[in-house]
Design a protein around this nucleic acid. Structure first.
Lengths: 194, 194
DNA sequence: TGATAATTGCCTGACGATCGTCAGGGAGGG
DNA sequence: CCCTCCCTGACGATCGTCAGGCAATTATCA
């Protein structure tokens, strides 16, 4: 209902203009209420920002869990590639949540700076377990060259973040071409040479 | 002098709070003047933003040119690795310019959105020529596996941007460890297998 | 069941603070 | 005398927040 509508509009405004740039008046206008009415659900602007962040994290985590169950029984190479692609598609379909995440993480408002580190660690922790098990399975199966799982994780995250950074620079078809090239080189870098 | 001081303070404030979040009063305070005095050098807030962007781009381009002349005659593998590392060090030493770049590119103010595409294309064009020649030299020398130079460029940019995105998440020594891992996997992905 | 009390959801009004910008002044050096 | 550089003053607009009101819904009790 109204609270969710406010959260959605807040995400959008924060993502676009940052914490200080977004105004309660603008958020309220998007919802169709007055700015003072927001206080019924979120006492302070900071509360609204925090609630929006948790909503975004929850949404992404649900996506990750769906990913996990969906790709349980397919070959490691394809699974890893599909996770990269599905992350890309998720970000394409959820540009607002994606932009809000990038904004919150890279340009956090002062009051949020202290808890940012743990929030990131929490989100990374949730995904790292999933990814790590895939890498270990790949190394056991001899598909991935033997190495530290942490090294693979570092490179995989760098890959995902690089994609997240670049995907809005180019047209969709142009970037999907790039994505194929990028994945090919990453996989060549971690696979067991025949 | 004063104009440069204003530019520096503007970069810092824009990088921290975004275009709408940064205030002329705050910038002026950092310089030690009144906000109205900024108008002597930059009539509008938008002009200040544009000037700061060009200053940032100029500074980075100078860095790239230094990189180019410095690493002219060393092996391709080391040259590519050093460029990755020097980019990282540059961003460590210039956190303000780096943050301003990320802010301007990912959360551009409305008036800047139209010209952003060409600005990015311009900056990428400047570096792409340099990088492409290195990849082609590597393939000619048989150090890099034969493939499209564009593919290599895409992956290399993804690598650089992924690093730029992640470098502030971790402590310096922790990230430099990660950096080594990431580079190792990237190089394994593009090199000519023995 | 019907009357009443309490709670919810959004409203209007107003507050001090700050925003970017316009107008104009005055000191100092060429 | 003019030009550069920074100043003060003031403007309308917008910011986030506090105080209080009013209808509709829900809960409580005779």
């Amino acid at each position: 209902m109204t609270a969710n509508a406010i959260l959605g509009a807040a995400c959008s405004q924060f993502a676009e203009k940052g914490f200080e740039g977004a105004s309660l008046a603008g958020i309220a206008r998007a919802v169709g209420i007055k700015k003072q009415s927001i206080a019924t659900y979120f006492a302070k602007k900071e509360d609204l920002f925090l609630a929006a962040f948790h909503e975004m994290a929850r949404h992404y985590y649900e996506f990750l869990e769906r990913l996990y169950t969906e790709f349980r029984d397919i070959p490691v190479e394809i699974r890893l590639r599909e996770i990269v692609y599905k992350n890309y598609y998720y970000r394409m379909e959820q540009p607002v949540l994606t932009a809000f995440y990038k904004m919150a993480v890279q340009f956090p408002p002062p009051f949020f700076r202290d808890v940012l580190g743990e929030q990131i660690a929490l989100m990374e922790q949730q995904s790292a377990g999933l990814y790590r098990s895939i890498f270990e399975e790949g190394m056991r199966a001899g598909v991935i060259r033997q190495q530290q799982a942490d090294s693979l994780l570092s490179a995989y995250y760098c890959l995902l973040d690089g994609i997240a950074m670049q995907m809005f620079f180019y047209s969709q078809e142009k970037f999907e071409q790039r994505l194929g090239d990028i994945w090919g080189i990453f996989w060549a870098g971690i696979k067991q040479p025949e």
